[in-house]
Design a protein around this nucleic acid. Structure first.
Lengths: 196, 196
DNA sequence: CCGATATTTCAGAAAGTTCTGAAACGTAGG
DNA sequence: CCTACGTTTCAGAACTTTCTGAAATATCGG
């Protein structure tokens, strides 16, 4: 491996993290390397820097393309493929979220819906379905929230995340400020401010 | 495998999903089975239902315990260990988030902090550090948000997630409703709801 | 302390994945 | 339509993970 020490540390760490996760080590390393590189790299550059085989790099890049995580570029007068990650790290986060949803959440939701359609044939199955329904509803809530967040511009999203649970306070304030006909609006959903 | 069809579908699916993820197939299956079971199960029950070896179940249960994902129970006059998942699915989500943070996010943050302390020895390293700083700041924002969410009671959390980006609208409304001395408060960034 | 029952550990077998070098393939420019 | 250069594919080697049966360990009631 032929990298500045600081970069090497980073690359090795993401190789390990990749394994812990569904991604293989080389793929993690390639991505980490592209992420910190100032310039687009071609396959041969990656081979030299990581010290893995050409074919391994080829497969890794293919996988990263399948995940939409790298951009392919060309330089004038050079027909090699050059790769980069998006400049905007939020774009990377968005892509990751989107792809994971597609691969993990969506199929699970499909399965849950199918199974919930069926008639339980026993008291056991009845209980199992009940539990699956809870899971289904949870996933539905989370995906709806995600769909909502995804639409926001990054600046807004950051703003909202920074607020965190302070939003609660604002909701309470809103309820207090809004004097509504019949009064006591929001008594159910936004109960009185309590301790913290 | 000796399960009602509906349960079997579910268990097999989570076995697969587990593999896609860092968790091995058997562990995923055990958890899915415990999740949908009305009664606590002991190791032998699991062996019968999943058709895997006793030792495999033992290891799987150990791993689930290390993740804090199962509760151990005893029945009077029976010294076998019985296992369940929490009744409240949100508790499961919380545990998962907590453990993944501990195993994946925290070590990454530690590494990033260390690497960012070092003096860049070249222009390459300087750029790499810049990128790592972006990643560090992103993780910091997300973990702060998570720390905030974690403190909320489930009811509140659900409420907040259900609102989604509608919160934005409420923030705007708040800004409009609050006529403050000196006016134009909140024009820049939607400041925190101070004063209580 | 013993026997019965339950759980854990562990070495090796089985299964799965990652990685490589070699060969096949694709294409731009002459 | 050839050559040079670059990319992809693929069969098997290397490595890693998962799983099993057998043995070791733990614990309860008598």
């Amino acid at each position: 491996m032929n990298l500045p020490p600081l970069v090497q540390t980073f690359v090795l760490h993401f190789g390990e993290m990749g394994s812990r996760w569904g991604i293989n080590r080389t793929v993690g390393q390639i991505y980490a390397l592209l992420y910190v590189s100032a310039e687009p790299l071609n396959a041969e550059d990656i081979v030299e820097r990581l010290g893995v085989s050409r074919s391994n790099v080829s497969m890794g890049l293919k996988e990263l393309q399948a995940w939409n995580l790298v951009r392919l570029q060309h330089k004038p007068g050079d027909r090699r493929d050059y790769f980069t990650t998006p400049d905007d790290i939020w774009q990377i986060v968005r892509t990751l979220a989107e792809e994971r949803k597609k691969r993990e959440v969506d199929p699970t939701m499909t399965l849950l819906r199918e199974v919930l359609m069926q008639e339980p044939a026993s008291v056991e199955e009845r209980h199992a379905q009940e539990r699956m329904r809870e899971m289904h509803d949870l996933f539905e809530l989370l995906t709806a929230w995600y769909a909502d967040m995804r639409r926001l511009e990054t600046e807004r999203l950051v703003q909202l995340l920074s607020l965190g649970s302070k939003v609660q306070k604002i909701l309470e304030m809103k309820d207090r400020l809004m004097v509504l006909p019949g009064g006591r609006k929001g008594a159910r959903r936004t109960p009185s401010p309590d301790s913290e």
